[in-house]
Amino acid sequence: MSIRGKVFRFQDNVNTDEIIPARYLNTSEASELAAFVMEDIRPGFGKREDIKDGIFVAGENFGCGSSREHAPLAIKTAGISCIIARSFARIFLRNAINIGLPIVELKDTSGFDEKDRVEICLEAGTVFNHTKNRGLRFPPYPEFLQEIIDAGGWLKYAQKGK
């Protein structure tokens, strides 16, 4: 699957309170959550017209903090098609895998800037930055996680093996 989009750039340790502040967690309605995605790091972000098919590029430990699945769900529902980071916080990683939000761990994410046009091929394990004309590779997911992804998420996988 090839994912194309425009980069929104974030730094290290983007936490779940920034992704979806707790004051909006009195609902679990995905569309309501998406309207406030990244609210405490970029106020108004969730209501912008140009975020559809966006790609987040971040540094280390993306999604640290709370276990709230509302965080990857808000990102996914807002139309962000993939997150590239140097590393993901553990619970965010499993939540993203479980709900089918594509994530990519890249050793070095320094060569990406806001608005760069990027193309990701998950199967081939490649990220191509068209703006910078530069390609990078990432290792495949562990087999178990790939099976969850292939099944269409954790609950579909879990039910298959029941």
């Binding site: 276990s67 619970i91 499993r94 939540n95 479980n98 178990f144 954790w154 609950l155 879990a158 039910q159």
Partner: peptide, 20 residues
């Protein structure tokens, strides 16, 4: 260990969760 809501839904369905 802390997990997400889909993990919990998985336990509600099957009694099980995945671990690394």
């Amino acid at each position: 260990a802390g997990m997400g809501s889909s993990d919990l839904a998985g336990v509600y369905l099957t009694g099980k969760a995945w671990f690394r």
